[in-house]
Simulated assay, not measured.
Amino acid sequence: EMDRSSTLIRDILNPDFTNVYVSTPELYDDIRSYVHDISPEMEKIVKLYKQKEPIYDHFGVEKQIKNAFGKTVNLPGGAYLVVEHTEALHVIDVNSGNRTASKENQEENALQVNKEAAKEIARQLRLRDMGGIVVIDFIDMHKPTNRKILFDYLRELMLLDRAKHTILPPSKFGLVQITRQRVRPEMNIVTVEKCPACGGTGEIKASIVLMDDIENNLNYILREQNEKGVTLSVHPYIEAYITKGIFNLQRRWFFKYGQWIKVKAQSSYYLNEFHFISSKDEEIKL
């Protein structure tokens, strides 16, 4: 029984491949041996990766995955796709982006953008293995000949797809419907991260409450822990709020606690983030 790497090579290897890099010697020997058996003339393209930098970082694989599987897929010409998934179907919207054209060649420009989008859509269907019903909203074209050109072009591109599929001609609303059989479980790669400031809720603590938190913690550090030479690190906006003006908050703290509190702006902090640093340049845990 073949392992996963050999199965993958069997399914996708074709004359267009110029290099196949492998990061481990054992897997390199296995793949090279397998390629020698099925296609001896391509054995030389299998190469052992020897650089110190991780192979995914060297070739930018993770960045490409994030770009390819996001909700928005950018196209080389400035147009972009918006891919939405629902329980019933998948929807792909084609947008011209920053590509503009005069009224005289607007139709031709729409055809070029749609053809560029069709090429990427055919690729996305294979990459994500999107199964079921796929509805594509191409840019409107008024000439029936252009709609037929696009339909034929998409059908030609889909010939590379091993999954069974059916493509319907554009409807009167310019929508193209595709039904496609899923070959493997659909790829669902998370391309967004939770905001560190709000934890994904979309809300942060009110700034007026933030200042209460800072003062309460400062009072505890100075009066309960008897710390000296304390530095407060905050977002630049908060630093300005504390230090600017004649009767600023920093000066009031000096009269209240009998010591000067240094306030340091950190542009990398989010708005309601703050930390207290001791005279030994260590963070004071609260």
Rank of each mutant, 00 (worst) to 15 (best):
Y34S: 09
V20K: 03
Q64F: 02
R4K: 13
D37Q: 11
D11R: 13
I65M: 02
L48I: 01
E41R: 14
Q64Y: 00
S5F: 09
Y28F: 12
I38D: 12
D37V: 01
N14F: 02
V73C: 01
V61L: 15
K71Y: 05
I12R: 10
I65T: 09
T24W: 00
D37N: 13
D57Q: 14
P54A: 14
K44I: 15
P25V: 01
P15D: 10
Y34A: 06
E43L: 05
V61Y: 05
E62M: 13
K66N: 08
K63W: 00
D30P: 00
T72Y: 10
I31G: 01
A68L: 11
V73L: 10
F17L: 06
E62A: 07
F59V: 00
N14M: 03
Q51V: 07
T72Q: 12
Q64I: 00
S5R: 08
K50Y: 04
T7H: 09
S6K: 12
E53L: 15
S6T: 09
H58V: 06
D16L: 00
G70R: 01
R4C: 05
M42S: 13
I65W: 07
N19P: 00
K52P: 14
Y49C: 05
I45P: 08
Q51W: 01
P40F: 00
L13R: 05
F59R: 11
N14E: 03
E43S: 14
Y28D: 07
T72D: 07
E41T: 09
E26N: 11
V22S: 03
D37G: 07
R32K: 12
S23R: 09
V22N: 00
D29H: 06
E26H: 05
P25A: 05
G70V: 01
V61Q: 01
G70P: 08
L13G: 04
F17K: 01
Q51T: 07
F69C: 08
R10Q: 12
I38T: 11
D30K: 13
L48S: 03
E62D: 12
E26I: 09
E53Q: 15
R10S: 05
S23V: 02
D30M: 06
Y56H: 13
A68K: 06
I38G: 12
T72F: 14
E43P: 08
I45K: 13
Y21W: 09
L48G: 00
V46P: 07
S5D: 12
D29N: 06
D57H: 07
H36M: 04
S33R: 04
L8S: 12
V22K: 02
Y49V: 10
P25Y: 07
Y28R: 02
Y49F: 15
K44C: 12
M42T: 10
V22P: 00
D30H: 04
P15I: 00
P54Q: 13
P54Y: 09
D16Y: 00
D16M: 04
L27E: 05
V22A: 00
R32P: 01
N14S: 11
I9P: 06
Q51S: 13
P54N: 13
V61C: 07
N14H: 15
D37R: 11
R32G: 08
I55A: 08
